[in-house]
Amino acid sequence: MARLLIVHHTPSPNVAAMFEAVVDGATTDEIEGVEVVRKAALAATPTDALQADGYILGTPANLGMMSGALKVFFDTIYYPCLDDTRGRPYGLYVHGNNDTTGAIRGIESIVTGLGWQRVTATVSVTGEPTKEDLEACWNLGATVAASLMA
């Protein structure tokens, strides 16, 4: 069975709503043969990343950057995963109060170094997520999970 690892930092109701929509999409009944593992960014380990076949990353944009928690995840897994996770699919959702550009740029730089392959558009939301934003999050979860179906 394929394993999808959702690594998230969910400190606010807005990011929590996006996270829940992503999980709902990834675990929809149409997705078969994919185990969805949810880990807070500070709890996720290199072993978690190595055992996953794909990834969804979620973070708030703090002061124009990804959360410190997601950065710690990347710092922890980067070298242990560098050679063994190349080519694996990923998706990304980011929430900011007014801008997410720097956070997205930083994350894309790291996953490019890891050799991960984005399989769907990044969901970037500023302010309170709309119904359309949450649908985009659901689609992100479903798309990344579906990319892992045998």
Rank of each mutant, 00 (worst) to 15 (best):
L70G: 05
A61M: 09
G54N: 09
V72P: 04
P80F: 11
A52P: 05
A49S: 12
M65D: 04
G58S: 06
M66V: 07
Y55N: 00
T59K: 07
A69T: 06
L57N: 01
K71V: 00
I56K: 03
T47W: 10
F74A: 02
D75A: 13
A69V: 08
A52G: 08
I77Q: 06
Y55H: 00
L82M: 13
G64S: 06
T47V: 12
K71D: 02
L70H: 07
G64R: 14
T59S: 14
Y78A: 11
L42G: 07
Q51R: 14
D53I: 05
A49W: 09
Y78H: 01
F74W: 06
C81F: 13
A41Q: 03
G68V: 07
L63P: 00
V72K: 13
L57Q: 01
L63H: 07
A52L: 11
P46T: 02
F73L: 13
K71T: 00
D75Q: 04
A44M: 12
G54W: 13
M65C: 10
D53R: 08
L57I: 03
F74K: 05
L42P: 06
N62R: 10
G68H: 04
T47N: 11
L82Y: 14
P80Q: 14
A49K: 12
L82Q: 12
A43Q: 15
L42F: 08
K71I: 02
Y78T: 01
T47P: 13
A52Y: 12
D48V: 05
M65Y: 10
D53Q: 04
L57E: 00
L82A: 15
A44K: 04
G58H: 03
A44Y: 03
I56E: 00
F73C: 01
Y78C: 05
Y78W: 06
A69H: 15
I56Y: 00
N62M: 12
P46Q: 02
S67M: 06
A41P: 01
A41G: 02
I56W: 01
A61K: 07
C81K: 15
A43T: 10
P60W: 04
A41M: 04
